[in-house]
Amino acid sequence: MGKATREAYGEALAKLIVEDEKIVVLDADLTGSTKTADAKKACPERHFNIGIAECNMTGIAAGFASSGYTVFASTFAMFAAGRAWEQVRNSIAYPNLNVKICGTHAGIAVGEDGVSHQAIEDIAIMRVIPGMEVYSPCDEAETKAVINHVAKTKNPCYVRLGRSKVDDVYSLDEEFDFTKVKVVTKGEKVAIFATGLMVQEAVKAAKALEEEGIKVTVVDVCCIKPIDEKGVLEILKSHDYIITAEEHNVIGGLGSAIAEVSVKSCPKNIKMIGIYDRYAESGPFNELLVKYELDANSIAKEVKELVK
């Protein structure tokens, strides 16, 4: 088992804050959970705790960014994207300010804390804001690369991060190009577009299916917006069966993003795997994935249904 993406975020940020004196980090009383505590330890003078006041933190981020700083603002995804949505829209995205909203504890993988903390709408509501870039990395290597990438762009960005430890998909020296979708396993006929920790589940499903003679292409969509339309189209055109997999409501997230590309020039039936417009519950992360049919077995079952 590898690190949680929030841990990778903390490590990457602790490095960046030392290297770049224009970076400031804001948190809303969750420094230990979001892992911005690492950056605070590395550079306490540029880490600010705003208290339990996410809307104000978002506005303060706008003030810092308008003063020439690159701002990383973190809290749980539910509050970063949810509670402060209108502040993100009006104080950060509309003026196009250099703020990176890094929401941790996204999806149902928060686990035991339950529904109030399980953001399954954040991709949808961040994606719909004009000018906002949306990233959903799957493991340590990809998260560190994303954090380094967004630190260099000047645009507002949302980065979706998880609480739970996940398997590594990539080695730490992997090269990433976030303008392109990334083919993780190459198969034929069946393609799964996956994001976040569903990349791991899709890869596991692909391995199991290969033993049964079904070869599946797994595509890691880390940058959900702006989406790599050309890359998505190539996959759509070259496969008969298309599946999307996300730890998010099936409304408005990765599945919708892929469907939006598809309807333009390559209409396809798309099977969306995700949370079916309902709330989950408290429980261990792995058991939740099984119950809500997001685990590798559930994905493999869907693939077999499709191709039979």
Binding site: C55, N56, G63
Partner: peptide, 22 residues
């Protein structure tokens, strides 16, 4: 600052003042 949605400008002003201190 781009303002109009009430209550938000004051937070941005706080951020600017913090930035000036930094």
């Amino acid at each position: 600052m781009s303002t109009g949605s009430l209550g938000q400008g004051i937070s941005a002003a706080v951020g600017m003042a913090m930035a000036n201190k930094l």
